[in-house]
């Protein structure tokens, strides 16, 4: 959940900021300094007594920052690009620059630092609030939000930044659970999914079971998503979470999970660029079309490319013990060991 931004001003003294000639605030978290101008975000740090800097498109940075905040730093590593990112250490967050880039690492020019998650969250929310201009929605597809991220500081777009991530307890539409998406609650059908049938299942519940006999139109629910690359939760089986999402253009981060996660492509196509988690070395390209299922191993980073808006079911195991079990090598990073000789059935 992004949460309310009304309290961020009170926190600014913890990461002192000043405004530059473009009107944007400058932020410092430990030895990391963040600034933006009309086009770019600049990240600075020190290593081996030298000042290092890294520049990203402000558009790319804000899209990544939005996911990191909305996902509460997600599982594992959220690489904003090949150099900068965050690692969720659960209650703590590690910020790094060059840590997982072979050249920065080899030259000793990488830097990382851990902070309390709440502190980084407040800082990132403040950064998002200040650096997002009116009209720009970091969750929207580029075709929907245009180029309003450019230029000198101009206003805010807090409505876009304050969206809450929709996580059901059992299933959307059940009494007391997250509501279904409709025109009435301001979830119109997205322009790319106007052809998706909106019929709801027929439910014939016996008296007394109206709250337990439940189904909904998942594809219609997704057709009304107003965000891209931002999974919601639509069903729960203990730690097993079905997290469907709609994707368009490029996943703004290279996500390196601290556990195996799975994708089930529900519609259209996504191409995944797979790299080694620690070095970024290319490993594979995975093309997923409707009906395809694939695991994302626990030792990779992945980035998706969706040429039109598509529906993807992300499947997560939210067991909090998993990061340590993979880190310690107790669990293998992939399912390769499950394969038997052809024809055998376990």
């Amino acid at each position: 959940m992004v949460g309310d931004l009304s309290d961020v001003r009170a926190m600014e003294q913890d990461f002192p900021s000043t405004r530059n000639e473009s009107g944007y605030q400058r932020f410092r978290l430990g030895d990391f300094v963040f600034s933006r101008d009309e086009y770019f975000v600049h990240i600075e740090w020190r290593a081996q007594g030298k000042k290092l800097s890294h520049t990203m498109s402000a558009d790319v940075f804000l899209r990544a920052l939005m996911r990191d905040v909305a996902w509460n730093f997600f599982y594992g590593w959220v690489n904003f690009d090949d150099v900068f990112g965050t690692r969720n250490r659960y209650d703590r967050v590690e910020l790094y620059a060059g840590r997982y880039h072979p050249v920065y690492k080899e030259q000793g020019l990488d830097h990382s630092a851990c902070f309390d998650s709440s502190f980084v969250m407040q800082a990132f929310r403040s950064m998002l609030d200040d650096w997002t201009n009116v009209g720009y929605d970091p969750f929207a597809a580029p075709a929907e939000t245009g180029l309003t991220w450019q230029g000198k500081k101009q206003g805010h777009n807090r409505a876009a930044l304050n969206r809450a991530r929709e996580s059901c307890r059992r299933m959307p539409g059940l009494p007391g659970d997250v509501p279904l998406r409709t025109d009435r609650n301001r979830y119109p059908i997205n322009r790319a999914f106007l052809d998706v049938p909106q019929d709801e299942p027929v439910i014939e519940a016996e008296p007394g079971f109206e709250h337990e006999v439940h189904a909904f139109n998942l594809f219609a629910y997704l057709s009304r998503s107003d965000v891209t690359w931002n999974p919601s939760v639509t069903s729960v089986c203990k730690h097993s979470l079905f997290c469907p999402t709609t994707e368009e253009y490029i996943l703004p981060v290279k996500h390196a999970n601290d556990r195996i996660e799975w994708f089930l492509q529900l519609s259209d196509q996504i191409e995944w660029r797979i790299e080694d988690r620690a070095t970024g070395r290319p490993r594979a390209s995975v093309v997923m079309r409707a009906g395809d299922v694939a695991a994302m191993p626990a030792d990779i980073r992945h980035q998706g490319f969706s040429r039109r808006r598509s529906m993807l079911l992300v499947w997560e195991n939210a067991d909090p013990r998993l990061p340590q079990l993979y880190e310690d090598g107790i669990l293998p990073p992939s399912l390769a060991g499950e394969f038997q000789e052809p024809g055998s059935v376990k």
Binding site: A192, S223, D268, A284, R289, S334
Partner: peptide, 30 residues
Amino acid sequence: KTVFGSLDSYVKGGIEVIDDDRRHYAFSNV
């Protein structure tokens, strides 16, 4: 047009291996 799959009409994707093993992805189609 949104492309969903069906028993009668599906086109399976694939894996281009650069330096990897396809089995790591347990790639199938429902």
